[in-house]
Structure formats: C-alpha cells, structure tokens
Amino acid sequence: MRTRRPNPWLSGVAILAFTVVFVLPFVFVLFTAAKGQQEAALLEFSPPTEWRIVENLRAVIEARDYLLVIAFINSVVLTVASVTLMVVLASMAAFVLQRRRSRLTGPVNLLVLSGLIIPPAVVPTIWVLQGLGIFKTLLGLILVEVAFHLSFCVLLFRAFLATVPRELDESAVIDGAGPIRLFFRVVLPLLRPVTVTVIVVQSVGVFNDFVNPLYFLPGEENATVQLTLFNFQSQFETQYNLLFMDILLITIPPLVMFLFFNRQIVAGMTSGAIKG
C-alpha cells in the first residue's frame, strides 16, 4: 500500500480479473443480442458470425404491437413524475426538519428511519390504492414510488441543509421574504448539488424497479420496461437474441446516467448510506 510506484503484477492481475468477472457478462449480452436466432440458442460465448443488430432491434421493438415502445414511455413518465415529486416533497420536509427543532423533530426522524427499514406491506397498499380509486393506474404507482423513496431523499436533503448557513435565511426574512419565497427562491437553488444527486440516484432506482410495478400496475397495456423484460423471458424462450436485445436496450439509460453523473451517484449512495 505504501509503495511509491504501482505494482505492475498486481495491477495486471486486477485488471484481468475485473474484466473477466465484471465486463465479460455485458459483452455476452452484446454478442447474444447481435446474433441470429439459431446461433443465439446455442448460448455460446462467442462473437456473432454475422452482426444482426439492426434486424434484432427492429424485431424487438415491433414485437407485440410495439409493446416495448409503450413500456418505455410508461417508464419515462413514471420516472420523471415520481422523481419530481420526491424532490419537491422531500426538500420541503427536510428544510423544516433541519431548521426547526421542536417536539416534532424526534418523531419525524423516527418515521424517516422507519421508511428506510420497514418492508412495505403489499396487499394493504393495494387496499388503500383501491379505496382511493387509483389501483392499476400510473398515478397510483407514481405516488407509491414517492412514498417508498421519500425517506432516503429526506436524509440526503437534511444532511446537505446542515451545511447551508442560517444567516442566509435570516437576511432573506429581513428583506421581507415569506416561507414560500424563502424556500423556493433562496434555499432550494442552493441545494442544487444534492438535488442532482437525488434526481440521478432515484431515477435509476425507479427506472429499474420491478417489484412495485408488478404489484401495483398489473396488466399488459400499461407495463413498464422491467415488467416487459420479465414477460419476454417466458415469451422469447426460443429467441434469446431478442431477449438479450431487450436487456441491452434497458441497460442503456443507466449507462448514460453513469457516464455523465458517476460522481454524483457514488456520492449520493455513500453519503445517504452512512446516515442509514
């Protein structure tokens, strides 16, 4: 650890091992997605004899009346709407929680922690959604995602708010700002770094979520991408090339997020984690 120069042996072994363990599975996905149907069925780890990316892409998009396109739209709407709500609701709550110490602070903190630990009760949630008339609707699923991810967002915002000086609030108040102006015009813009982190981390989480759509948004026509992928598994049993093309497509959005926001993602996941 203290050697001044990198150890070439160790480095070589590490790079080789990491490539085999962590990169090759993705290469396998890419290869299989580009193969013809018969070649893919062999399940072999080999480059395709003939690259058929475009044909496979078209086939998987057109499958079942463009179901995948509808699923992508659903997933994007779900992700954007729920993450927007999370940011607004969590930052407002975290603002009061961090700034105003009172009898409520303890209980609210306890509720936030419970949200991280307690596994959500499935059927009773369906019962509530049905009572509200939003079971099997995208709106219902959006609100469920918000409720289940709120705690984590509040923790991130609260930790960051602790670094924003109170003098700022005071001078804004002296200048005549009410609570709404103070928060949305003065404080929220200062929370930009943590807001980016929350948006990126939660977008990836909601986009990849399988369990909640499975329970709360059943039905073919309003499937999300993860559900479609799961259903394709039984449906494309003999068409591994199309199945893996679907996996490839679903991996692209997180990959783009990762390439642009690697630092924010890691910061968010580790800082939020340390509070847990």
């Binding site: 609701l89 009061v96 949200g115 009773p124 609100l143 609570p179």
Partner: peptide
C-alpha cells in the same frame, strides 16, 4: 413563521396514506 409546519404536509400525506397506513393495517 419562516419554517412552517405545513411544509411537512404534502410529504406526510403521501407517506401516511401509502406507507404508514398500510403498514399498520397489515
């Protein structure tokens, strides 16, 4: 007056209805 409790309200409504209530009802 600068940190009103009603800022909790939107978050609390969603969280109570779809997380706390189902957990207790369970």
């Amino acid at each position: 007056s600068s940190y009103p409790y009603w800022f909790y309200l939107p978050a609390a409504a969603v969280y109570t209805a779809l997380f706390l209530l189902p957990t207790l009802a369970a």
